[in-house]
Design a protein around this nucleic acid. Structure first.
Length: 266
DNA sequence: TTACAGGTCTTGT
DNA sequence: ACAAGACCTGTA
């Protein structure tokens, strides 16, 4: 067991509902379970200001989960930057979203997950992803692993019951492409934010919004700022013509975006 | 029933 | 460059 005090900057329930992860689920009254990169962990659903207990040992924490939960980033500092901004809308969004962190998730899983997310709703996205995991059938503790590029037959994605709809050929093509270009993911990881973005939007089914989500949640580029319908609406509603202070939040733009997004869907 | 959902692709100016 | 329209489909 690892007990970590995040000093009010880790709220499992908010993260689960934040829309960046689709496979977190409540396993009992007080715990949330997660399968990430084939590893399983459970955590307590503590209030934001209480320490969180994780079902792993110190070696597992340091070797994987610490990075996954972005535990080394100073979210208190980011909170202070917001609190001292005088931006009332953002401060209100932060009040609602405090405790959300940017997870460092498996790159390929994020690519597929956010390709599925286009013009889709969270319920359907989660359902499709879970079905993909079950159909590929790679069991791990806690459920099924998300199938990597060589761990699923691309034909599988044509199956209508997965509910992928018109996105199915995009997903199939991505599995085939990465399987045939095994170095592509590593190259993406070595690229700068801008180069990774440019490379991603070359693929069919990936546009500006999804590419930004992949950069933010799968590649750890915290300056990626995905603009979806909600954030677009919010920017138009509260900030006339580019008056949002992007410059001020250089270095944590994606985290700011998460607060705004969470606030708007809530 | 009709409209919507964390957009993207295609086609036409 | 930019603006429509179309697009799978479960759910409310």
């Amino acid at each position: 067991m690892m007990k970590i005090d995040f000093k009010g900057t880790f709220d499992p329930v908010k993260i689960m509902k934040s829309g960046q992860c689709f496979r977190w689920k409540q396993v009992d009254e007080n715990h949330i379970g997660v399968i990430a990169s084939g590893k399983y962990i459970e955590m307590t659903m503590a209030k934001a200001q209480e320490p969180v207990t994780f079902s792993c040992n110190e070696e597992e924490w340091n070797g994987f989960w610490k990075a996954y939960f972005d535990a080394d980033r100073d979210y208190v500092k980011i909170g202070n930057l917001i609190e001292s901004s005088g931006d009332e809308h953002l401060m209100e969004a932060y009040g609602a979203g405090r405790g959300i962190r940017i997870l460092k998730q498996d790159l390929f899983e994020i690519i597929i997950s956010f390709m599925i997310s286009q013009n889709n709703n969270i319920t359907r996205i989660s359902r499709s992803i879970e079905l993909i995991c079950e159909r590929a059938g790679i069991k791990v503790r806690g459920g099924y692993k998300f199938p990597g590029p060589d761990e699923a037959d691309p034909k599988m994605f044509e199956e209508p019951s997965l509910g992928l709809g018109y996105r199915a050929p995009y997903i199939k093509e991505m599995y085939e492409f990465v399987s045939e270009n095994p170095n592509w993911l590593r190259e993406l990881e070595s690229f700068s934010f801008k180069d990774a973005y440019k490379e991603l939007i070359l693929r069919k089914g990936i546009g500006p919004k999804v590419a930004n989500c992949i950069c933010l949640f799968g590649l750890g580029h915290v300056n990626a700022f995905p603009i979806d319908t909600h954030v677009k609406q919010l920017l138009e509603k509260y900030y006339n013509k580019e008056e949002f202070d992007f410059k001020r939040y250089e270095g944590c733009l994606g985290i700011i975006q998460q607060f705004l997004f969470y606030y708007e869907i809530k």
